[in-house]
C-alpha cells in the first residue's frame, strides 16, 4: 500500500518536472512546479518528515511559487513586432537543447549506476511513527542554535537586499 502511494507521488513529481522541461509557456511550467512541490511534500511524509512536509508546502507553494509567478508576469513581453520590414528571425536553439538533455540523461545514468552498485548499511534505528516536531524544536534550540540564528540574519539580509534592489527601478528619474 505504502509502495503504491510512493510510486504514484514519485510519478507525479517526475511527470511535473518533465512537463516543465518540455513546455514552452513558463506560466504552465510554474503551475507544474506546484504539482512537483506537492509530490515532494508527499515523499517527505512517506519518509517520516511531517514537519518538513508542511514547511515545504507553506514556504515553497505559499511563498516561492507566488514570487516566481509574479516574476514571470512582470517580465512577459510580446515577441511579435508590427514592423513588417524586419527580417523574420528563425531561432534554432538546437545545440542548447541537445546538450541539456545529454547532460541530464548522462548524469542520471551515472547516478543510478552509483546508487544501484552501492551498499548502504544503516547504523541507526528505523524511524518510528511518532511526530518529529518535538525533536526538531529541541534540536533547533540546543545543538543547532548558531545555524538557526545565522539563518535568521540571512533572511533579514536577503529581505533588505531584495527590497533595495527592487526599489529605484528607473535610475534616471
Amino acid at each position: 500500500m505504502e509502495a503504491i502511494i510512493f510510486y504514484i507521488f514519485s510519478a507525479l513529481t517526475l511527470a511535473a518536472g518533465l512537463f516543465i522541461l518540455f513546455s514552452k509557456n513558463l506560466i504552465y511550467g510554474a503551475f507544474a512546479l506546484f504539482l512537483a512541490f506537492l509530490g515532494v511534500a508527499a515523499l517527505y511524509v512517506l519518509a517520516g518528515a511531517d514537519f518538513l512536509a508542511v514547511s515545504q508546502i507553506m514556504i515553497y507553494v505559499g511563498g516561492i511559487l507566488v514570487l516566481l509567478i509574479f516574476g514571470i508576469m512582470l517580465t512577459q513581453k510580446k515577441e511579435k513586432s508590427d514592423d513588417s520590414t524586419r527580417h523574420n528571425r528563425v531561432e534554432v536553439p538546437i545545440t542548447r537543447k541537445i546538450w541539456g538533455y545529454l547532460t541530464g540523461i548522462g548524469l542520471f545514468g551515472l547516478l543510478v549506476k552509483v546508487i544501484l552498485s552501492s551498499n548502504f548499511r544503516m547504523a541507526g534505528e528505523e524511524m518510528s511513527t511518532k511526530s518529529t516536531i518535538k525533536t526538531i524544536g529541541v534540536e533547533l534550540m540546543t545543538s543547532h542554535l548558531l545555524p538557526f540564528e545565522i539563518a535568521a540574519i540571512l533572511l533579514l539580509v536577503a529581505l533588505i537586499g531584495a527590497a533595495y534592489l527592487a526599489l529605484n527601478r528607473n535610475p534616471t528619474a
Binding site: T13, L14, G17, L18, I20, L21, L26, G29, A30, L33, A36, V40, Y60, I64, L68, G71, I72, T75, P93, R96, K97, W99, G100, Y101, T103, G104, I105, L107, F108, L111, V112, I115
Partner: peptide, 26 residues
Amino acid sequence: AALFCIGLAISITKRHFIGMLLGIEL
C-alpha cells in the same frame, strides 16, 4: 537523482532567467 537531472536539464535548456530558477528549485 531523476528530479535533480530534470532540474539540471531545465536550467540548461530554458532561455529565460526564471526558467533557470525553476530548474534550480527542482
